[in-house]
């Protein structure tokens, strides 16, 4: 098992740092899956147990100048690592004006993802900072736990408003209640509601548009749904906020799929990153 990658370009480094910062906000620990052309950050918390899950996919070619990996076997050319994204985020924070950043899988006091940062100095030689991030190697028999989640059979799919706007609304609502009701219809309308003992607040968004999903399933319930009728889900506001707060760059596309009273599925698409996030609905 081998892995080494190198970032030289500052823009790529900044972009990668932002992605990692977002992931660090969403998950305490996650699984890093490495394949020949992609990196995945996976949180496979079972939504059924009330936790969130996450699936984030990056094309390595858009970030790394060098990327070499060798999995356990030729027919299973993949690596699965358990890690704390916060550590990676901290390591990258000190690499802001780095000349190069190398990330490799090493074996120092246990398996580590070593981030070696070469920093410019006033003198001729550069300064090397290495961060050894402890990781756990996930054996092959457990790989099946980390499959890409399928898009749920949703009632309504809708484009999200500008995330910054949504964030400032949700941030204020958080002070009033722990739960938020997200409801939307096929007419491009979405409402964010909170209902506390003393106050009810609703923010209405209009004209958001509904993404066209090509259905290969004739039973898709969205086909014959009344465009005015709302599908709603009540979710934990503290699970929604990190998703909105973590986005330092507005994604090219942001949408959410609501399965009435069961789950909200968010999809954020950047040019080279896609992030899916699932929040279970509460009763």
């Amino acid at each position: 098992m081998r892995f080494r990658a190198k970032i030289v370009d500052v823009a790529c480094l900044n972009h990668f740092t932002r992605v990692i910062n977002t992931i660090a906000k969403l998950a305490k620990t996650c699984t890093l899956r490495l394949t020949e052309d992609k990196l995945y950050f996976i949180l496979a918390d079972k939504v059924a147990n009330g936790g969130v899950s996450m699936w984030c996919e990056l094309s390595q070619g858009n970030f790394f100048d060098e990327f070499q990996m060798e999995g356990v076997a030729a027919e299973h050319n993949e690596i699965y690592l358990e890690m704390t994204p916060e550590n990676l985020s901290r390591a990258l924070k000190t690499a802001q004006n780095a000349k190069t950043v190398k990330i490799k899988l090493t074996n120092k006091h246990g398996p580590c993802l070593t981030v070696a940062v070469e920093l410019p100095t006033l003198s001729s030689s550069s300064r090397i900072v290495t961060h050894d991030i402890p990781v756990g190697v996930i054996p092959r028999r457990l790989w099946n736990d980390f499959r890409e989640p399928s898009v749920p059979d949703f009632d309504v799919s809708i484009y999200l408003p500008v995330l910054k706007t949504m964030k400032s609304v949700v941030e204020r609502m958080k002070n009033l209640s722990n739960y938020i009701v997200l409801e939307a219809n096929l007419n491009g309308e979405m409402n964010l509601k909170i209902e506390a003992d003393l106050v009810s607040v609703t923010t209405h968004f209009k004209g958001l548009g509904n993404p066209p999903w090509v259905s290969d399933d004739s039973q898709n319930s969205t086909q014959d749904r009344d465009p005015e009728s709302m599908a709603e889900a009540r979710i934990d506001i503290r699970k929604l906020l990190p998703l909105l707060a973590g986005q330092q760059v507005n994604p090219t596309k942001a949408l959410c799929n609501i399965v009435s009273k069961r789950i909200v599925h968010f999809i954020l698409l950047h040019e080279e990153v896609s992030l899916q996030y699932f929040i279970p609905a509460l009763a």
């Binding site: 390591a91 006091h109 246990g110 300064r127 090397i128 050894d132």
Partner: peptide, 16 residues
Amino acid sequence: ETSKTMMTELCLSEDE
């Protein structure tokens, strides 16, 4: 636990 904590090491060259 070393298996949980990130280790950071920084090397400076003499000419700094």
